[in-house]
Design a protein around this nucleic acid. Sequence first.
RNA 1: UGCCUGAUAGUAUAAUGGUAGUACGACUGUUUUUGGUGCAGUUUGUCUUGGUUCGAAUCCAGGUCGGGCAACCA
Length: 554
Amino acid sequence: MSEEQSLNFIEEIVEADLAAGKYQSIVTRFPPEPNGYLHIGHAKSICLNFGLAQKYGGKTNLRFDDTNPVTEETEYVESIKNDVKWLGFNWAEELYASNYFDQIHGFAVRLIEMGLAYVDDSSSDEIAAQKGTPTQAGTANAYRSRTIAENLEFFEDMRLGKYADGEKVLRAKIDLASNNMHMRDPIIYRIKHAHHHRTGNKWCIYPMYDFAHGQSDAIENITHSVCTLEFIPHRELYNWFIEKLSIFPSKQYEFARLNMTYTVMSKRKLLQLVQENHVTGWDDPRMSTISGMRRRGYPAAAIREFCDRIGIAKRDNLIDISLLEFCVREDLNKTAVRRMVVFDPLKVIITNYTGEGEILHSENNPEDPNGGVREVPFSKEIFVERDDFMEEPSKKYFRLAPGQMVRLKSAYIIKCDDFVKDANGNVTELHCSYIPESKSGSDTSGINVKGTLHWVSALHAIAAEVRLYDRLFNVEDVANAEGDFKDYINKESLTVVPHAYAEPALLKDSMGVGFQFLRKGYFCADKESTPTKLVFNRTVGLKDTWAKEVKKGA
RNA sequence: UGCCUGAUAGUAUAAUGGUAGUACGACUGUUUUUGGUGCAGUUUGUCUUGGUUCGAAUCCAGGUCGGGCAACCA
């Protein structure tokens, strides 16, 4: 293999570290806070962290960053585990920052003993004011010069629950004049009399992110701690604690988080969509969550492929959602079984068809020679799509029109002889004649037609509900659009087709697979689908050059 | 106003002092019993001004523009 694959900048760092013998093998981690469901942005991080370990023969921990008991819940923990697994990754260990609360508390005591932390009685407003501004140094208060003994005692009293929330905090004593605001005596422990989803009521003080994340990394011997760009200013602090505490020197590296067009990618906003019922839940198929995409029918492999294609870099980006859709189609084209479903039926009577009906066969997947065929019943009366007929066709319209011929997929060529209108002028019925010798597979008619239509036998059709999804927002860059992001919600993001006509094979199909409804797009059975009421989600449409053509003409 | 970051086709991402390439998008053509797929092709780019060098996307200096930083969130 002479194929040279270019590395992203983190892979370069890893390779350099390995080549220099800095580590024998690498350890990464994926560290979500269990305060919401995972979204496609997390998928990028998951693929990066797990991918690194896979590629370089290391391991990846799943670590829940659960240091804020008031926002975190077990429901989220379960959903996160489920999503990571579904994406196809196995973690070495399932860990929690809360596992380390004793050790982290010990680190805090050590810092106090070294004279590098102090208990501050100031209010949150006072602390903010004393921090100064980016251009003005902060000022020390009287608490900063408390003795080690005092600090030890007060911190212990904090732990014992002698104070109310907000009465006291523990701060690292670093540099109130630092250019980096995070170094101006950051708070490292706060009092929260709250129930924790894992440690219950054992603790009433909890470490802040900055005093838990790096410490957890060190405890787990994480070699490469990868996070997003907004943590760059935290790195100095991260390193300071590692140095002062003399713990394992994990290194933090930052990459640009994923932004995607026509969607939101923040847990806060996603939570809002759920709570205010703009969507039906975290797994609403329109959501950018992993669970939403799974329900919508996006294959895990397609999401992985997408994450691979967008790359890892440090500049801000806004990825076109059509790239994700491309990856979904690429995957589904190879795997989805083809079925025929008519959404907006128009009855066709095949006037010269005298038989009782017959069973025809159609390939499950033309891309897969081993995919086999299924049985498709044919009869004198069928349904085709309403927009597959035009009374006065344009020149490039290759479908049904008076006198025009088309092939019915896997069946016969038919010719439109006549049509029937109701009192309102709506076409209600087509009368066609078929060419008996044009039967699919044994066509001796010699006739070539330009159009092929999907269809279902009226006698054998089964009912199905079909849900069509469009983008949830109608502006590209939702996060940077002016005003409230909810003003940009696309009111037409869901269209329900309550009574589509489906071919009967669908009744016997297993529901976990991806379908392609011929000429309609890719679909999957929704979790609400039952044998008596089939419900399908449109995963993504087919590329539609005809629609483009029509648009151009209009 | 300070500090930290970043800037390559429409969107992403390579080229690590030596031919600016790839993918998606867009557009052509071709194949096709899905106006799908496949195949072939076209299109568009190094933020700017100087400097170093035989040679600069890459190194240096200044500028411009974008993002981040002053939560008892992560």
